[in-house]
Structure formats: C-alpha cells, structure tokens
C-alpha cells in the first residue's frame, strides 16, 4: 500500500508493509520500522536509531511533533485536489482576511482594481509586526470593508475579490 504525503513542494511516497501492530514504511531507499507507542505516539526506527513521533491526522492534514520540531504534512485526496492545501491556501480565495487580529496600516488597492496573483493587497499590524497579505488569485477588487487605521479581527474579510475565470 502506497500512502502519499505532501510537505511544502515535496511529495513523499510511503510504501507501507503492515507488521504485527506496527509497519515497515519505505520512503525512497530508506526503510523505517514504525511501532505504536501509546495513543497518538509512535516510535520510528531508521538504521538502529529510534525517534519518538507524536502525530495526529485531522482534516486532511498530518500534524507531527518530531522531537521538538513541529511539522504539517498534507494528505492528497483521491480526486487529485489537495484535501487541505498549504496553511496559507485553505481560505476562500475571494475573501481576504487579516492573519491575526490587528490594525490596518495600509490598503494597497482600491475597489475596481485589477489584481494579479501574489499581488500585495493590504498591510496589517499585529504584535508590532507588519504583515503583508497577498492575493491568491488573479481578479478584481469587488469590495473593501475597512479603511486605513481600522481595527480588524479575523472573521470579517478585509477585501472581497472577484476571481478571474481560469
């Protein structure tokens, strides 16, 4: 059984051979011996070195803690689309939200503007850091719900877009 996982741009093909209550998992030319340790925890052994991994599968994603390093992997769904997608790509592309509650420092577009994918749309300040929010698609600015200096939370879109048909 082959299980495919995505980490950023890297695709990992894991070939799983069940063995008792564990499995042998081959990725590339490396063979990992995986055994359940306790609920949600596994030991993963490679070349005699054993690591403890805490991992959970949720909403098409794998959240894993490999000895202090937190990783997020995506499980591709069967029709080829990404089930969850990258963290930054999950939201509706036609609605632009603040990354965290904060203040709008500068709107970089106005209603009616044509915009391109990755074009900066707005700068939001939170925790004294400025965060630039970019468009995820080509299209047009349909509506802007806030002004410079407004406080925003994360549940009302700052900008609504009309996405161009591909």
């Amino acid at each position: 059984m082959i299980q495919q996982l995505l980490y950023q741009d890297t695709t990992l093909d894991a070939s799983v051979e069940p063995n008792g209550n564990g499995a042998e998992v081959s990725i590339g030319d490396r063979k990992y011996i995986v055994k359940p340790l306790s609920s949600g925890k596994y030991t993963v052994e490679l070349n005699g070195v054993r690591h403890t991994v805490c991992c959970m599968v949720r909403d098409g994603k794998v959240f894993a803690d490999v000895e202090g390093m937190l990783l997020e992997l995506t499980i591709p769904s069967e029709d080829g689309d990404m089930a969850g997608g990258d963290a930054g790509m999950v939201g509706e592309k036609d609605k632009i939200y603040a990354p965290m509650p904060g203040k709008i420092v500068k709107l970089l577009v106005k209603e009616g503007d044509d915009i391109a994918e990755k074009q900066p749309l707005v700068i939001v300040e939170a925790m004294k850091m400025e965060n630039q929010v970019n468009s995820a698609a080509n299209g047009k600015v349909k509506k802007i719900n806030f002004q410079n200096g407004d406080q925003v939370n994360t549940d009302t879109p700052i900008i609504e877009l009309e996405i161009a048909e591909e």
């Binding site: 059984m1 299980q3 996982l5 980490y7 890297t10 990992l12 894991a14 799983v16 069940p18 564990g22 499995a23 998992v25 990725i27 590339g28 490396r30 990992y32 995986v34 359940p36 596994y42 993963v44 490679l46 690591h51 991994v53 991992c55 959970m56 599968v57 794998v62 894993a64 490999v66 000895e67 390093m69 990783l71 992997l73 499980i75």
Partner: peptide, 16 residues
C-alpha cells in the same frame, strides 16, 4: 524529520 513524520503518519493513517 519530515520523513520520520511521514513514516509514523503512514501507520496512523492505515489505522485511522
């Protein structure tokens, strides 16, 4: 670490 996580995830998904 990603591969190690993927190996554990593969077993977790099989048993999911």
């Amino acid at each position: 670490a990603v591969e190690t996580a993927a190996a554990a995830a593969a077993l977790a998904m099989m048993k999911s």
